[in-house]
Amino acid sequence: MKLATWNINSLKVRLPQVLDWLQAHPVDALCLQELKLPDDKFPLEAFTEIGYTAQWAGQKTYNGVAIVARQECLEVQRNIPDFDDHQQRIIASTLASPIGDIRIISAYCPNGQAVGSDKYEYKLRWYAALRDWLQGELQRYPRLAILGDYNVAPKDEDVHDPAKWVGDVLVSEPERAAFNAVLDLGLTDAFRQFEQPEKSFSWWDYRRMAFRRNAGLRIDHVLLSDALRDYCVSCVIDKTPRANEQPSDHTPVVATLVLPQAS
């Protein structure tokens, strides 16, 4: 089973790239973030034509998340229950597998804008609500994978120039602590299960030729529960789409799980 995440920064603009990538990399589930379109504009037919179905939570202009999958998505949940928020940042569904149902969550975590801002405080509250909700989800669905744009580079090795980023949003200590609190529930950063090349990033600013200079951050993550972690045999960042014409500023992250066949 292959699971992937990709912040595509406008599905309307990037739909042909997403379809091309799925046909070249037929993953079982692709979690998308920043759809930037309302529910009624989601291009479901384009995905069904290449053998996929989807569930989504859209929002005009901003935010929006989706799960594009090869099989029917069951038990769909939009947003974090009991957290009053009009922003569409979470969608969860259940997929069948040989080892039992797997809960898949696509997450678009808040950016935070600037340390100390209202949006930064919202980000920390949102992370706390996410953690509280995931605690219950993990009890109900021990086989859980939450993929998305976390807007946190967990460690200095995930930052192209840590000295330049000290104290900034995406790397500040409260944000990293919030991310680690999610991991502490019993989740593993799949990318760091394996030896990886230095300077491995998933996001590069459009400005100052950041991609060409590999001046990026690793802020897109695949987190796996303890019940899934040992099935994961690889997790890679596919940088190729970032070199497309008119690309997203993010690129896909793909985790491969080898599951035993049902007896």
Rank of each mutant, 00 (worst) to 15 (best):
Y141I: 00
E75V: 02
A255D: 00
P197E: 09
I237C: 05
A210K: 08
S234Y: 04
E198K: 13
D161Q: 10
S248T: 06
N9Q: 11
V18P: 01
G167K: 04
I146Y: 03
N63M: 04
D205M: 10
L19K: 13
E245Y: 14
A54M: 04
G100R: 07
P81T: 02
N63E: 07
I91W: 07
Y141K: 07
A243Y: 13
L37G: 01
P43T: 06
W165S: 14
R103P: 01
V171Y: 06
Y120G: 04
P154N: 09
V171F: 09
V171D: 01
A96C: 12
P98L: 08
D82T: 13
D189G: 07
V182Y: 09
Y150V: 03
V65D: 03
H250S: 02
Q135W: 12
F47V: 01
R143N: 14
E195A: 14
R143M: 11
N244G: 06
I219H: 04
G136K: 12
L170V: 10
A46S: 12
A129E: 02
V27P: 02
D189L: 10
E173Q: 13
A92K: 14
I146E: 00
D238T: 02
V18Y: 07
P197W: 10
F47W: 05
M1V: 01
R78T: 15
L30Q: 02
W204T: 04
N79K: 13
D161G: 09
A153H: 06
L223R: 08
L32V: 07
G100Q: 07
V13F: 11
N214F: 12
E121Q: 15
A128E: 12
L147Q: 07
I80T: 08
Q87W: 09
D20G: 14
W21P: 08
I237T: 05
S10T: 10
W204E: 06
R229S: 12
R207G: 08
E49I: 10
Q23Y: 00
D220W: 01
P43G: 04
L257T: 02
K119V: 03
K155M: 13
S172L: 11
L11P: 01
L185G: 03
G51N: 11
